[in-house]
Amino acid sequence: MTIFGTLAAKPWLESGSGEFPPSGRLRIPTGRLGLIFFLIVISVLFVLLGTAYVMRMGFGDWVPLDEPPVLWLNTLALVLSSAAFQGAWIGVRRNRPAGATAGLYAGGLFAALFLAGQLVAWRQLDGLGYYVASNPANTFFYLLSALHGLHLLGGMAAWGRAAARLRHAGSAAELRPAVELCALYWHFLLVVWLALFGLLLADNGGADAVLQPLPHGMH
């Protein structure tokens, strides 16, 4: 039933044994629904930070930072990680345990690489004198990449549990829920990272490039 159909119901007219509608649960696994709500919360978090980023950019003291080239490699690692999880997902769906295992391990490995690469990027920026507090552009980069990294780290904990279960799992089907949730989460974090990276690159084109459509009167 559609959402409007549900809300238009007249419950006071349906009473007694004649009327026995199903409860109308959503047709997706409960775990995935919970994760989707969580992803919505994280989206709000990053959208608010992105809005603050764009607003703060317009205050005149913004000096864009030169993004270290390693960020491109990190992006590649995260893409591969996400792709590997997708492979694992396909593996459990088609009941190919070997594919699922390989995908799961590779996904975790690339994610760890990404996190290590992010630390390298931080070291490089720090070495170039882009300190946290010396410019808001730096602060935002550190803050956003740290928050993104922490979310990925949380994902790694879930991945660890799934990988540990892998040893005892009798069949690929047993792993399916965990792998599905991991894959979904990884794809989401990839999208978040691409958005953050895009914001960083766009801002290197000059604050004006990003701020053009925004009316300055807002502040």
């Binding site: 809300l7 119901a9 409960t30 629904l33 709500f37 919360v41």
Partner: peptide, 24 residues
């Protein structure tokens, strides 16, 4: 709050017993 909140909404949507529609 987020941990609790995810539980509340998901439970209300997914754990209703038979016959308990949203509008009931």
């Amino acid at each position: 709050f987020t941990m609790g909140g995810l539980n509340y909404v998901t439970t209300i949507l997914q754990a209703r017993t038979r016959g308990m529609t949203m509008m009931r």
